[in-house]
C-alpha cells in the first residue's frame, strides 16, 4: 500500500500531528519555565521581604521569631556591603600577586586553593559591582578606580 491510503491506514496524519504538538509543548513549557527562572531566583534571594509582605497581607502570621523584620533586612544589606569590601580587599591582593590581565578560572582556582570562601559567588559579585572588568580580549582586569571609591566609602 502506498500514497495517502498508506498514511491513512497507519494513522500517519494523527501520529505526525500529535508528535509535533508534543515536541512543541515540551519546548514551549521548558522555554516558559526557564524564561522565568532568573526572576524566581531573585524572589528567592529576597524571600524574607516577600514572606513579610504576605504575612502583612493576610494578617494571620505576625512577623516575629523566625521571620526577619525589615530592620534585619537592612542589617543584612549592610553586612553584604561589609562582605563585599572585605572580599574586594582579599581579591585586590590576590590579583596583585597573579598580575593583570588574568583569567577568571585561574583566579577562582587560586582563591579556592587559598581557602577563600565561595570564590564563584564572590567573583560574580565583584563582576556585578564592576570591580572586575573584561579587557575585551577574553581576560579580565581589576578596576582600581571602583575599588578606591568603594574603600573611601568606609
Amino acid at each position: 500500500m502506498t500514497g495517502i491510503d498508506a498514511i491513512l491506514y497507519h494513522n500517519g496524519f494523527g501520529m505526525a500531528a500529535v508528535g509535533i504538538t508534543i515536541v512543541f509543548t515540551a519546548l514551549v513549557v521548558l522555554s516558559l519555565v526557564i524564561s522565568q527562572l532568573h526572576k524566581l531566583l531573585i524572589i528567592w534571594d529576597d524571600r524574607e521581604t516577600y514572606i513579610n509582605k504576605a504575612c502583612r497581607f493576610f494578617s494571620v502570621l505576625k512577623p516575629k521569631g523566625g521571620l526577619v523584620p525589615k530592620k534585619a533586612k537592612k542589617e543584612s544589606k549592610a553586612a553584604y556591603v561589609i562582605n563585599i569590601k572585605e572580599s574586594s580587599r582579599q581579591f585586590s591582593i590576590l590579583i596583585q600577586s597573579i598580575g593583570e590581565p588574568f583569567s577568571l578560572p585561574e583566579l577562582i582556582r587560586i582563591a579556592e586553593s587559598l581557602g577563600i570562601e565561595r570564590p564563584y559567588s564572590t567573583v560574580s559579585h565583584l563582576i556585578a559591582g564592576n570591580l572586575i572588568i573584561p579587557d575585551q580580549k577574553g581576560f579580565f582586569l581589576w578596576n582600581h578606580e571602583a575599588y578606591n571609591s568603594l574603600s573611601r566609602r568606609s
Partner: peptide, 20 residues
C-alpha cells in the same frame, strides 16, 4: 528554543513521506 521545535517538523513530514 521554539526554532529547535520548528525544525523537528521535518521529522514528522518525512515520516508521512516514507509511509506514502
Amino acid at each position: 528554543m521554539l526554532l529547535g521545535a520548528a525544525a523537528q517538523t521535518g521529522i514528522f513530514l518525512t515520516f508521512l513521506g516514507a509511509l506514502a
